[in-house]
Design a protein around this nucleic acid. Structure first.
Lengths: 359, 359
DNA sequence: AGCGCCGTAGAAAGCGCTTTCTGCCGACGC
DNA sequence: GCGTCGGCAGAAAGCGCTTTCTACGGCGCT
């Protein structure tokens, strides 16, 4: 019932081989013949059978993008940037010419199991490339499993790229490139800003425990604190709470921190969304931002500039990183030397931070 | 090099057919044999070749979810709800048992061309189902092209479902089900709320022109206005500006509306994100919300409750709708009678609307 | 004039799986 | 005790494409 390659061949009075060559454009075909074939394709409204050609050619045009939370713009921005690098832009011809890829995003929900599941599914589809974004869970067993999976994928010819995620410990060369974010540096700069302003009692609503991103941001923060001789480790731990990357976590976290230390003058949030929750809790407690308590976010998502007050945060060039990762996955861009290129984080000072209240 | 079905068969001392049957679980296999096969699969770390099985079986386990903007939570929420209905939850076995699907989201960026491109790509992959979310562009040529494409997909066995999008005019039965949002009703209720509060000069920062959602929301608004005898058509048009669904559009739109009519007492935004931009512009102009000007959004995205002031808006059950659409796509849920089930919209009154200032 | 070569098209062998059709074997019925 | 049936496994024919290898003209060259 569906139109096949040979139907087209018959109509164009050529062999199936020729049609295939026209569609793939990787073999000389006389202009007149090509013309005829294209016309037949058009007339029959033919669409290549993806599975069949993937099987025969042993590669497919599927590219998988794994994200932790598809409803979070942090990932949305990276994914859409990556996706926009991968064709799909112009009209798809009937064939696979032009190297258009089907870039698809897979939502792991932050669950290691689902991450592995998707990787298997992608492996099953013989994906051309896989792009992992965001956080990695710091469970040795899981990291090993992921690394092993990626190694197998790489073996089968899939290009693996890591974006906003540290390089693999286990099989570093299974990966084409890794673009980790400089979370440590960003957190450090942010904390220094707060210290300069005069803050000494700084609370932290951190991200989920056991995640590299969370750990790195914490390390940056503590490094700055330590360098300034502000507080000891026990204090830091007391002034840190963990939670997911949502508004609720910020709200609850801020209340908890306030309970633990009502004298707090600043709160650093795991990201901008969490920061909004923190602001809400503060406001509810009758505290003004930044006059009574300063608040800082992380990521610099678009809404942060519009918040009231506008959020001081650390800008991560999500779009650029995503786009670059996309090109790397496609092989359009040369991998960086050493396969790793850190993505820098820049402090953005806005209205939500200020000097601590005079006592 | 890669492990194939027959490798597994050899190791398990059975025929390839048997291995296939174990993996697909749709044919009786003696427990002992099954056991043996499963062990072999495990030992060889075998992963089914998706393209090959898709080719042989003439179906694949790919499900496409088309969204306009992956970085917008509006779509993120629907997509993630739909995706979570489609397996990927538990560990993926080596086979396709359990009907796990690879649910992938495709970002059209609101471009009709890319929409068609993705549809072709999905058709090429012989997708099991396709889920179109959000707005449809109101260009007859494009609608016809999409409808035709969907009809061909349906013909090939792909289940097509529409979520937050009106049923097809051209080939209504190409679609398994359509779950359009009640944008008219929502807009109407919202406008009535404003009218009851006493507002008469209501500005509108609408969504992109030539989109069904935009049109429906406008129609609801004008219906309410007309019913209350508030303003004529020319006035409405003068107090309406169009723009994309982003913060910027709200900001620019509000400034423009203020210029056109400084006596405005309320502004209805295309959605919550736009509403935030409106608030920013108002604030900048020295106007308080809602004391001087009331502002209302649409969709009730999570951040709306946290905005300052908390946004009055229209709640769309995005999660529920997405989940239902997912089940419909999978065939887990019976399609509604007539294949169409409107999704209701509910007014949520919060702090951003109030009585107009006494003159 | 003959040779070889370039440019182009066709034949055909798979790619790795699913599935019908066939066949074996033990159990059960009469 | 033999025929028959049912439960399970194997053989083999594709699924629709890609790609090597082969074939065929016509051209330029010697």
């Amino acid at each position: 019932m569906p139109v096949t390659l040979s139907d087209v061949a018959n109509r164009a009075k050529v062999s199936p081989a020729t049609v295939s060559r026209v569609l793939n454009g990787n073999y000389p075909v006389a202009a007149a013949t090509r013309e005829r074939v294209l016309r037949a394709v058009d007339e029959l409204d033919y669409v290549l059978n993806g599975p069949a050609s993937a099987l025969a050619a042993a590669t497919s045009d599927l590219v998988g993008i794994l994200v932790n939370d598809i409803a979070d713009p942090f990932f949305g921005i990276m994914a859409s940037a990556a996706q926009s690098e991968m064709g799909g832009g112009e009209a798809a011809g009937p064939g696979r010419a032009g190297g258009e890829k089907l870039a698809v995003v897979c939502n792991t929900g932050g669950s290691p199991t689902r991450e592995l599941t998707y990787l298997t599914l992608l492996q099953r589809q013989r994906a051309a490339a896989v792009l992992l974004t965001g956080d990695a869970v710091e469970d040795p067993a899981h990291s090993a499993a992921v690394a092993a999976k990626l190694a197998r994928l790489a073996e089968a010819g899939t290009r693996v790229v890591l974006c906003g995620r540290p390089p693999l410990a286990a099989h570093p060369d299974a990966v084409v490139a890794a673009l980790p974010f400089d979370n440590r540096g960003g957190a450090r700069a942010l904390t220094e800003h707060l210290l300069e302003l005069g803050h000494r009692r700084i609370g932290h609503v951190a991200g989920p425990a056991e995640r590299t991103t969370t750990r790195h941001r914490l390390e940056g923060l503590r490094a700055a604190l330590a360098a300034a001789g502000a507080g000891d480790d026990r204090t830091h731990r007391r002034l840190t709470v963990h939670g997911p990357y949502d508004r609720r976590s910020g709200y609850d976290g801020a209340r908890e921190l306030l309970r633990r230390d009502p004298e707090l003058t600043a709160i650093v949030a795991a990201n901008d969304t969490v920061a909004l929750g923190v602001c809400a809790a503060l406001r509810e407690a009758g505290l003004r931002v930044p006059e009574d308590v300063s608040v800082a976010g992380f990521d610099d998502l678009p809404f942060s500039a519009d918040a009231v007050p506008a959020l001081t945060t650390v800008r991560l060039p999500l779009h650029e990183a995503g786009a670059r990762a996309g090109r790397l996955a496609l092989g359009t861009e040369e991998p960086p030397a050493g396969r790793v290129a850190a993505v820098s984080a820049r402090l953005v000072v806005r209205a939500s931070t200020g000097a601590p209240p005079a006592r």
